[in-house]
């Protein structure tokens, strides 16, 4: 029986390296189904590297990553494609296809992976655009909309195949406080209404407090997790790196 307390992601002793250089060492953590999970840390601590391992772009040097009970590292071929269909990813700058309108960007995965007729594809794409507040912009090209709108459109594209887990790379980075707050509200709405598990990489403290059920903090020196818990638990951590991070961010 799948319950909210069941882990949907389980990382066991993960070591990530670029050639000889180890970035992350012996990482273990779990993400519960339906939770909003935030990976935080300073620049260069390996947040994006961890995310790219979780979404299957990089192979770990060591360790295992279980997505919905299936090991991503040792799964290949058709099974891996099926497993990857359970996740949706929003990249930091959106990574929308510039030669396509927003509607076409959303229709592309539906066209490739489903047998739905065109009217159905358009309806589902429009509904997803509507969820992120961009239904009126369906005919715009990515270059014609703002950075915040591009991020929202990228979230809509990531959701279009109904994934169980949504990965967001720096959803609030580069946005003004109001747009950033709107993005936080959107993430919470998606987690609430669609029941998705959301894994976000962020170093924006207000966002972390607003959205996270659970967070881990990575550290560049130890190459591992220095804190794991709710944002409130992290804010009161005794670890000097965590305290410094929260104090600096709160100060700024």
């Amino acid at each position: 029986m799948e319950t909210a307390a069941t882990p949907i992601i389980e990382v066991q002793r993960l070591t990530a390296a670029y050639g000889e250089e180890t970035i992350l060492e012996n990482l273990s953590f779990t993400v519960n189904r339906g939770a909003v999970f935030v990976i935080l840390g300073g620049s260069g601590c390996g947040k994006s590297t961890l995310l790219k391992h979780l979404i299957g772009l990089y192979q770990p040097a060591n360790g295992q990553i279980f997505i919905d009970g299936q090991d991503l590292v040792s799964t290949y071929g058709e099974s891996r494609q099926t497993l990857l269909r359970k996740i949706g990813v929003m990249y930091q700058h959106g990574a929308l296809f510039g030669s396509m309108t927003l509607l076409e960007n959303l229709c592309l995965p539906l066209e490739e992976f489903t047998e739905l007729p065109e009217t159905a594809r358009n309806l589902i794409a429009t509904m997803n655009l509507s969820l992120v507040g961009l239904a009126d912009y369906h005919h715009y090209y990515p270059a014609e909309i703002s950075g915040g709108m591009r991020k929202r459109a990228a979230i809509a594209r990531a959701m279009v195949l109904g994934p169980q887990i949504l990965f967001l790379d720096e959803p609030s980075a580069g946005l003004d406080p109001i747009t950033s707050a709107e993005m936080d509200e959107l993430i919470l709405r998606l987690a609430g209404s669609l029941g998705m598990t959301i894994v976000a990489v962020s170093h924006e403290l207000p966002s972390i407090h607003a959205i996270a059920d659970q967070a881990i903090m990575l550290d560049k020196e130890t190459k591992g997790i220095v804190a794991n818990g709710t944002p409130q638990q992290l804010a009161h951590s005794v670890n000097p790196h965590v305290r410094q991070f929260f104090a600096r961010q709160a100060g700024s």
């Binding site: 509607l103 076409e104 009217t119 358009n122 309806l123 429009t126 509507s130 969820l131 209404s193 669609l194």
Partner: peptide
């Protein structure tokens, strides 16, 4: 039902696939 309530039929007009 909560998810359904987020969509207004008037917002979801039938669209051509491209401009």
């Amino acid at each position: 039902a909560k998810l359904r309530e987020q969509f207004e039929l008037s917002e979801l007009a039938e669209l051509p696939s491209s401009r």
